[in-house]
Computed example of a mutant assay.
Amino acid sequence: MPEPERNPVSDEIEGCYMGVARMRRYSEGIPLPLSLIEIEQYLQRHPTVIDRDEFDAGIYAIDEIVLQHFKEKMSE
């Protein structure tokens, strides 16, 4: 599968995801989906010019992929 085209907005959201994910909460060792709380805490320290709806959607989309990967690893 060819690599998707990169753009500055998706690159920034991807980079920010790592910071937001560091604030992830866990329940009994299982990662919980990121919430607005973690995103807002991150943005208080690291503001962005990206539209907030687009930023949130990007963070949630990446998080969904990461959590799906975690679930697959746990079921092996």
Rank of each mutant, 00 (worst) to 15 (best):
K71I: 02
S75Y: 08
M18R: 10
L43T: 13
Y26Q: 01
Q41M: 09
H46E: 12
I65W: 11
L43M: 15
M23R: 14
E38V: 00
P8C: 00
I39S: 01
E76H: 07
T48I: 01
E14T: 15
Y17K: 13
I59K: 04
S27H: 09
C16G: 11
S75H: 09
V49A: 15
F70V: 14
L32P: 00
K71M: 14
D63E: 14
P33G: 04
A57S: 10
K71Q: 11
S10D: 09
D63P: 11
E28W: 09
L34N: 15
E54S: 10
V9C: 01
M18S: 10
R52W: 10
Y60N: 08
D53C: 03
I39Q: 00
F55R: 05
I39N: 02
Y60A: 14
I39K: 01
S35I: 01
R25E: 09
E12H: 09
I37W: 05
M23L: 14
S27K: 13
S10T: 08
P4Y: 03
P4D: 09
I30G: 00
V20E: 09
D63G: 14
D56M: 12
V66M: 14
S10Q: 09
E40Y: 03
D53I: 00
L36P: 00
C16P: 09
R22K: 15
C16R: 09
M23A: 13
I65R: 15
I30A: 07
S75D: 14
E76Q: 01
G58H: 01
I50G: 10
Q44S: 13
P8L: 09
P2Q: 12
L32S: 07
E40W: 04
D63Q: 04
F55A: 02
I30T: 12
E76I: 02
E12V: 06
A21W: 04
V66Y: 08
I59T: 04
V9Q: 07
V20Q: 02
E64D: 13
E38K: 01
R52Q: 14
P33E: 03
L43I: 05
D56S: 08
E64W: 02
P47M: 05
E64V: 05
P8F: 02
E72L: 12
E38F: 04
M74N: 06
E28L: 08
L67C: 08
L34A: 12
E28S: 12
G19N: 05
S35G: 11
M1P: 10
I50Q: 11
T48M: 05
E76P: 00
H46V: 14
I65A: 15
G29F: 01
E12I: 04
A61S: 15
E76M: 00
H46C: 12
Y42G: 03
V49G: 13
P4M: 08
Y42H: 09
E14F: 10
D51A: 15
K73S: 06
K73T: 01
I37Y: 05
P33V: 07
I65D: 15
L43F: 09
